[in-house]
């Protein structure tokens, strides 16, 4: 079954819902009557060609942008003011260079008005889980790319939100570090019982991590093509050579190639 943690332990209930959302940026329609539901505890990947509006989707989900029409709701009670309620990890790690690992990670707690001492205590408790034990007082510049991403992710989880939006978190990492980070992210997801929505350019990554993959074909997006990933969990890196994995990979590849060819057609006609 496709639902990770939620399977058997929790009743399926929505974490994030887009209903009939439309959004345009500079007169270019990006989403049109777009609907989407992410359930609690799910791990969902979003993939699509550059410029299709993946980041826009995230900025709508974290409250930075407001839809022109339609509704975006968080959780059961239909929360609609989303700023401060969703854990967001941007593509760049965006660590503040003048703050240590400890101070960077404590930022969301500080913003919520927590006392510094309590905030630091909470960060220190989390450091080992994120492989950052002993690095509390290091500055971002002293860290490797993988470690910086882990600090950034720690900071996102400390917003206290049950929903994490990860925007190509590993795209700047080398292949080996990337594989380590993927397995580690999966174990973190299991441990924390959170819901994750992940943008990626990497088909393998999208499949390996997620319960289902949403493929965005071309703007304006009306509907995401949904590809369920019916592979068991826990998953390991080796899974990427499994025939079932390869079949899903081919399926997504075909959808993307279609989308790119169609876009090319439109380009030639225009």
């Amino acid at each position: 079954m496709a639902y990770g943690l939620s399977e058997g332990t929790l009743a399926v209930s929505p974490m994030l819902q887009f209903s009939q959302v439309s959004f345009s940026y500079q007169q270019r329609s990006i989403l049109k009557d777009f609907s989407l539901q992410i359930d609690k505890g799910e791990f969902v990947s979003v993939i699509g060609p550059s410029g299709v509006g993946k980041s826009t989707l995230f900025h709508l989900a974290n409250g930075l942008l407001q839809p022109d029409a339609g509704q975006i709701m968080l959780g059961d009670n239909g929360e609609s003011n989303l700023l401060g309620k969703v854990g967001y990890m941007p593509q760049k790690d965006l660590l503040l260079p003048w703050r240590t690992v400890l101070e960077n990670a404590a930022l969301p707690l500080e913003i919520k008005g927590m006392k510094q001492e309590a905030a630091y205590r909470q960060v220190r408790e989390q450091l080992p889980i994120f492989g950052l034990e002993g690095w509390a007082d290091a500055y971002p510049e002293q860290l490797s790319g993988g470690m910086r991403q882990r600090v950034s992710l720690l900071r996102a989880t400390l917003t206290g939100s049950q929903l994490l939006l990860l925007d190509e978190p590993f795209s700047a990492l080398d292949g080996i570090t990337k594989m380590e980070m993927q397995e580690w992210l999966l174990s973190l997801w299991r441990q924390l019982g959170i819901t994750v929505l992940l943008i990626t350019h990497d088909i393998e990554e999208a499949i390996l991590l997620a319960d289902r993959v949403l493929v965005l074909k071309a703007a304006p997006v009306q509907e995401a093509v949904e590809v369920p990933v019916s592979l068991g969990r826990p998953r390991e890196g080796r899974l990427r050579y499994d025939p079932a994995f390869l079949a899903i990979r081919e399926q997504i590849w075909d959808i993307l190639t279609d989308a790119i060819n169609a876009a090319g057609e439109r380009g030639r006609r225009a």
Binding site: G84, L96, T159
Partner: peptide, 18 residues
């Protein structure tokens, strides 16, 4: 100030003052 950083703080619910 890096606008991406401003946006990140806003997603954490930061006020103008913060």
């Amino acid at each position: 100030t890096d606008p991406d950083m401003v946006n990140l703080l806003r997603t954490m619910g930061a006020t103008q003052k913060q």
